[in-house]
Amino acid sequence: MSSIALCPNDEAAMVRFLMDDNGDCLPPMQLNATSVNTEMFFDKAFNYNLMVTFISILQVLLLIQQRKHSNTQSGAVKVSSFTIGQQAVMDAYLCLLHLTAGITVEQLYNAFSTAAFFKFVIFSFCELRFFLHIWKANRPTNYIQSVEARRELSVLYIYFCGILLGGILITYEFPKFLPVITLVVHSYWIPQSATNVFRDPRKPLQPSYIIGMSVTRLVIPLYIFGCPRNFMHIKPDRSWCIYLVGFAGLQANILLLQHYLGCRFFIFLILMQMFPIKYNYHKRLDQDINRASDRVICMTAIDFTQHPDFCMVTPCEHVFHSHCLLKWMDIKMDCPTYRRRLPPV
């Protein structure tokens, strides 16, 4: 004898009673099945890919604007290579995830491959090139063409591939810690804040880049862990979403305050002794300085009777007009006379 009972919702439970050779009923066996609305699933997945494509285009525009701002050697030195490298790793992960999802679900291959392509463009053509530009700016010109520089670059690429592979293995072995791993990955502004404190540069990142990147990089994790009807059927965790937004917002606010109030605005006077002393370009001029030869920028005489801020003295004891040397340092961080490395202003 058998009987079938159907549930009123999408789920169906089938119960079948089996009989043995003696005619006795065996314990019932129950099967649960859930129906999936494929049309709604594909619509949600397509809308998700449109969202990813849109934010990817915004990120490309933000990176282009920031790259223009840091195009010179002095501008690139101000940016932390760890911040750009961590963002490149994030986009590389997203590229692999979307490409894998497109291969797994054939009907979504075109949509997911488009999102994977944009992420590939971001981390390969924008962020890795930006990372290489920062790496060159932090090293002497004659060192870049040497064999040691090529070996160092090879080691960096090996580290990059190793981090990608290690992150995939960790996520596969410990899927329960995915929210914690996501929080750690979204700490990409911390290296830039630390670089601002130690080097004390002038406005290394544009506010639009800080705000735009912080907002666009929160869209995907908030959709996955916050949307109750996401197409991946992941249970939402609103408390974790609040932690993520607060954590990312705190990092972005610190960078914005450093931009407007100074990179060391929150450091107390006692803790200031722990950091390197910033070089003072407006120190008192000594009589031993060779003042006659220090006009290689504008080729005009320097009036030493004016205010001390009118002139700037380099560590190699050369004097220049303040506005001339500042313009020079926006392009190159070398002394115009001796070509020695100059400290940040």
Rank of each mutant, 00 (worst) to 15 (best):
Gly246Ser: 08
Asn253Thr: 15
Phe231Trp: 05
Ile254His: 08
Cys227Glu: 12
Arg229Asp: 13
Gly226Asp: 09
Lys235Trp: 13
Phe231Leu: 06
Pro236Met: 08
Cys227Met: 12
Ala252Ile: 02
Arg229Ile: 11
Pro236Gln: 04
Ile254Pro: 09
Leu244Cys: 02
Ile224Val: 07
Leu256Thr: 08
Ile224Asp: 07
Leu255Ile: 00
Leu256Met: 12
Ile234Pro: 02
Ile234Trp: 05
Phe247Ser: 12
Phe225Ala: 10
His233Ala: 11
Phe247Cys: 10
Val245Thr: 07
Asn230Gly: 09
Leu250Arg: 03
Ile254Ser: 06
Trp240Pro: 08
Leu255Thr: 00
Arg238Leu: 14
His233Cys: 11
Gly246Arg: 03
Leu250Ser: 14
Ile224Thr: 04
Ala248Gly: 10
Ala252Glu: 07
Asn253Cys: 14
Pro236Asn: 10
Tyr223Cys: 10
Cys241Phe: 07
Asn230Lys: 05
His233Tyr: 11
Cys241Glu: 04
Trp240Phe: 08
Met232Ile: 05
Pro228Gln: 04
Ala252Arg: 01
Ala248Lys: 05
Asn230Phe: 10
Phe247Asn: 06
Val245Ile: 03
Pro228Tyr: 07
Tyr223Thr: 03
Leu244Val: 09
Cys241Asp: 08
Leu244His: 01
Ile242Ser: 13
Pro236Asp: 08
Lys235Thr: 15
Gly246Val: 03
Leu244Gly: 01
Asp237Gln: 08
Tyr243Arg: 10
Ile254Phe: 11
Gln251Met: 11
Asn253Tyr: 15
Ile224Asn: 05
Leu244Tyr: 07
Pro228Val: 09
Gly249His: 08
Asp237Ser: 12
Ala252Lys: 04
Asn253Glu: 13
Asn230Arg: 06
Leu255Gly: 01
Leu244Trp: 06
Ser239Arg: 12
Cys241Val: 01
Pro228Ala: 03
Met232Gly: 02
Cys227Asn: 15
Leu255Pro: 01
Ala248Asn: 03
Lys235Asn: 15
Arg229Asn: 14
Arg238Val: 13
Gly226Ala: 09
Asn230Ile: 08
Gln251Ile: 00
Cys241Ile: 03
Phe247Gly: 06
Cys241Tyr: 08
Tyr223Ser: 10
Tyr243Cys: 15
Pro236Trp: 06
Leu244Pro: 04
Ile224Pro: 00
Leu256His: 05
Cys227Phe: 12
Gly249Ala: 15
Met232Val: 06
Gly249Tyr: 06
